[in-house]
Amino acid sequence: MSEPVLVAENLTQEYVLKGGLFGQDRIVRALTGASFALEPGKTLAVVGESGCGKSTLARVITMIEEPVAGSFVLDGTPAGPDTLAALRTTVQIVFQDPFGSLNPRQRCGQILEEPLIINAPEMPAAERTRRAREMLTLVGLRPEHYDRYPHMFSGGQRQRIAVGRALMLEPKVLVLDEPVSALDLSIQSQILNLLVDLQERLGLAYLFISHDLSVVKHIADDVIVMYLGRPVEIAPKADLFDHQRHPYTKALLSATPMADPTLRKQRIKLVGELPSPVNIPDGCPFAPRCWKAEARCRTERPELDQGTHRAACHFPE
């Protein structure tokens, strides 16, 4: 077991929603108490419904936002305002929408070189260009693509550019915020293969955010299941897909459609909508939708238990 490159402790993020003229300010608890560790060459997947704080976690880890509480250590250095410049090259991010994440007025070459221009201004232009061209080949694009604008590329190709750009600074941790959700099936498999290859070659650690469990099952080593900003189950992939300890994970898995028409599975029906993170219920956040909820669940908040397969539930299985 090697030293983790990323250790997060109790990360918490809140946003203030300004009330109108007469309304009160409300607090959105987007992320609460996220703790985990990530080793080099491993993939940690984060799954959960829309609005459960996955992207918020990504923004905190990539230091786009500062958490209101909690801390994390990147490659041995605690992250904070003072170490921001030093850690800038350690962690990079790839966004979901390959059409929005590339500057439409920059050529592919410029897009790749920009991180170097900013972070290594002393590097000669020829060296930058060489590296950008190398990166093009690494992510499976062709040298002649160097001079093209993003609108001349397909979605999959753009996502390759986005991955390439994130790798230009040779980061140790790559945060992937739903990197294949916007792509077609045939392109999705190309990008997933690319990610697997790059990880093997460069020893990258991935924080892989997704809501597609079949993709997670394919690519992850460990999985965090989040619900309303909180991790509710953390486990190695095999354990998690083998048996789910938290009722929410169970429901999530049973709701995921399987591409096999012969399979007739029992679906757990969840009643009610995902509550909003503005007023998270006391006690277990999942209690309003949980079929196993009891009085204790509504008053006392369950914490993650210990072990390799952790769940935050009073009645785990």
Partner: peptide
Amino acid sequence: HKDYVTSAKVAGAGRLR
């Protein structure tokens, strides 16, 4: 608020840039 601006920020771009 578009992603390409955020990604320039993550690359370390300053405010003027």
